[in-house]
Nucleic acid binder design. Structure first.
Lengths: 339, 339
DNA sequence: ATAACTACCGAAAACGTTTTCGTGTTGACA
DNA sequence: TGTCAACACGAAAACGTTTTCGGTAGTTAT
C-alpha cells in the first residue's frame, strides 16, 4: 500500500497544525472559512480518508460486532447472518465472522482473539461439541470482562447474558398437531442426540401434542440421528414400524425420509406425511415440496443485533439479561395431507 | 465494559516503566528474570490481554481481510466464504464480511468504509447491478490506493487485479456434452440476462458442444431468465419446443424445470434430462437427484485468500495480476440418463 | 484607556502498544 | 585507580486521530 495521506501530511503541506486540519475537516466554527476551504480542497483532491484504526483507538470503540457460528453452509445460519449484518449496518456497525465448525477448541480460540478489543460485542451460537461437554467457562470469562454478549438458537442457561431463541417446544407441538389434525395416527420423529438441546425441546412439543390427541408415544418412534454416522441408514429404520407420518428435526432428514418412502413404494403425502424443520431451499424445491417449520432466521439475527447494540450503547446502566423468544410457524406444502 | 487492564496500569502498579512491562511480557533479555517473573505473574493474575487496536495502529496492519459478497443465503457463496475463512484462519487472519445485496450503491459504500484502514485487503464478488451498469470506478479507486484486491467468480476485465474464476465456458461445454453423449438431440438452456457474464460464458460452452455434436442451436432454445420476474412462468416456456434435455444455469432453475416437466407428464430423466449448475443441497436431496456442475466454492475461497495474503505480505514487490481458473466437473446423478 | 469579547489557531494530552536509544550501576580487569 | 563491558531499566517517539485549554490579535464597550 502506498504512502497514505493523513492529517499530519496535510498539516505539514499547508503549514498549519494538525488540530486545525482536524477541526477544519469537521467543519468547526473555530476555523476561518478560508482556511477551511483550503484544507477541504486539499483533502478532497488527495482523497483523504480518516484512518479508522486511529479513530477506534481514540474513541475506545470499534463499531464492529463479532459473530461466531458453528457453520455457514446451512440455510438457517446463513439467514441469521444476513439478519445480523443488515441490522448491524442500519446502526453503522460492521460484522466480523468466525466459524467454530462445531469444535470446542475453535470456539474458545475465536472467543479469545475477538475479545481483545477488536469488537464491541459478540453474537454467538454455541458449537455442538461445547454443548455436548458442557464446558462454558470461556463464556463466563467474557461475562466477567463485561463484554456485551448475545447468544442465539444454541444457548445455555448457565451463561448469564441476553439470548434469542426459537420456540422449539411450540414448534414441535405445532408440527405434530398439524399431522394429528390430518388424521395421522402413528407419527414418528427424527430427532438429534440428547445433548443437542434443540432436538430435546422439539421432542417435548412432539410428545405434548401426541398426548393431547391421545396418540401412541412409543419410544421406538423417536429416532436420534447421529450426525457422525450415515444419516440414510439410520433414518431407514423409521419404516420398521408402520407409520403414517414423520416429523423431522431438519429439512435434510425430511428429504431423505421422503426419498426412502418412495423407495418403499409409499406415497408422500398420501401414505406418509412428512414435516421438516427449517424452511429452506430443499423444502421449497423438492418434489413433493415439504411442509416445514419456518424459523425466521432473519428476525432472529435482527433481534440479536438489536439486543447487543442496545447493550453496547448503554454500557453504564446494567440491564438484567433478557431472553427473546421468536415463535415459529408452519409453512404447509405438498408433503402433508389429511387422510 | 469495565476498566480494562493495560500495560500502563501494570507499569504504575509495579512501579516500573511501560517499556519494561512490554519487554518483560515479550520475554526480552534486557529485563532481569525477577522483574520478568513479577510482571508476568501480575499480568497473568489480572488476565492481561494486549489491545489489538493499539497493535494494529502501531504495526500498520490489521490482519483482517474484508469480504464483500452479493448475497449469503446461497450455497455457492456460503461455501466460498467458508473457504475464505478457513484459509484466512490458517494464516492468522480474520474476515470482515459485508453484503452488497446485488446493489451497486451498497457495494460502493462497503468498499469505501472497508478501505479506510480497517482491513489489509479485500476479496469481492461483484454485484449484478454493478455488472449491469458497468460502473467500476470504485474498484479503480482501490487499485490506485494499492489496496490488495482479489475478485472472484463475478469479475470484470477492466479491473486490474488478481482474480479467481470458474471455467464457465468449460463447464457449459461439459454439461452439454454429457447430454449430447446421452443421445439427447434438442437441448435447451436456461440462462441469465446477457450482462451477467456467467450466463454468457456458460452459453458459449453450450454452443460449442452443440456445434461439435452437430446439434440444433436454435435461439429459441435459450431462455434468458430475468431474476426480477417470476421464474416459474418464464421457465415454463421452455416446454413450448419439444425438447429432450435442459441445461440450467443454477440448481433452482433446474429444480423448477423438473417440477414443470412432471406437471406436463414428462418423465425425468427418461423424457427430459436435466443438468443444473451449483452442486448444492437441492441437487443432492431433490428427487430425482440432479446431475450438476460442481463449482468447488471451497477451493475458490481458499485460492482467493491465498492470492490476497501473498500480495499483502509482499507489498513491496509489485507482482503482475494473476488469474486462477478453477475447473469444474460434473456430478452425475439421477436427472440425466442416456436414451 | 482599559476591560471584555470575539475570531482564529496551536500545543499537548490521550487512546495502548513497541522499539530505539540512552543512561546509570555493577563488576572485572589491567 | 581508571577503563570498559555487561546488565537492567527508562525516556521518548511513533502509529493517526480528537479535544481541551490556552494564547494572540483585533474589535467593541465603558
Amino acid at each position: 500500500m502506498r504512502q497514505k495521506i493523513t492529517i499530519k501530511t496535510i498539516a505539514k503541506e499547508l503549514g498549519v497544525s494538525t488540530s486545525t486540519v482536524s477541526k477544519a475537516l469537521r467543519d468547526s466554527h473555530e476555523i476561518s472559512v478560508e482556511t477551511k476551504d483550503k484544507i477541504k480542497a486539499y483533502a478532497d483532491y488527495y482523497n483523504y480518508k480518516p484512518n479508522n484504526l486511529a479513530l477506534q483507538l481514540r474513541n475506545q470503540k470499534t463499531k464492529v460486532i463479532g459473530v461466531i457460528l458453528p457453520k455457514i453452509v446451512h440455510h438457517f445460519f446463513s439467514t441469521v447472518i444476513k439478519g445480523i449484518e443488515s441490522g448491524a449496518n442500519d446502526k453503522g456497525y460492521h460484522i466480523m465472522v468466525c466459524f467454530s465448525n462445531e469444535s470446542y477448541e475453535s470456539e474458545v480460540n475465536n472467543l479469545k482473539v475477538l475479545s481483545n478489543g477488536s469488537v464491541d460485542g459478540l453474537i454467538v451460537s454455541i458449537s455442538n461439541e461445547t454443548l455436548e461437554n458442557s464446558h462454558f467457562e470461556h463464556f463466563q470469562g467474557l461475562v466477567n470482562e463485561e463484554i456485551p454478549l448475545v447468544l442465539f438458537d444454541r444457548v445455555h442457561d448457565s451463561i448469564f447474558c441476553d439470548k434469542v431463541i426459537v420456540d422449539d417446544i411450540g414448534a414441535g407441538y405445532k408440527a405434530t398437531k398439524h399431522l394429528a389434525e390430518n388424521g395421522r395416527k402413528k407419527i414418528a420423529m427424527l430427532s438429534t442426540p440428547e445433548h443437542v438441546n434443540i432436538g430435546t425441546l422439539r421432542k417435548q412439543g412432539y410428545l405434548k401434542a401426541l398426548k393431547e390427541f391421545d396418540l401412541m408415544s412409543n419410544e421406538n418412534l423417536v429416532l436420534e440421528i447421529d450426525e457422525k454416522e450415515d444419516a440414510k441408514t439410520q433414518i431407514a429404520k423409521v419404516f420398521d414400524n408402520e407409520i403414517d407420518a414423520i416429523f423431522a428435526v431438519n429439512e435434510i432428514y425430511a428429504a431423505i425420509a421422503i426419498r426412502l418412502a418412495k423407495e418403499q413404494n409409499l406415497r408422500v403425502p398420501e401414505d406418509v406425511s412428512v414435516i421438516g424443520f427449517t424452511d429452506g431451499l430443499i423444502s421449497e424445491y423438492s418434489s413433493p415440496s415439504i411442509t416445514a417449520i419456518v424459523q425466521h432466521g432473519l428476525t432472529m439475527g435482527r433481534q440479536a443485533v438489536e439486543l447487543l447494540i442496545e447493550r453496547i450503547e448503554n454500557e453504564n446502566e446494567s440491564l438484567p439479561p433478557r431472553t427473546k423468544v421468536i415463535s415459529s410457524n408452519l409453512h404447509v406444502r405438498e408433503s402433508t395431507k389429511s387422510k
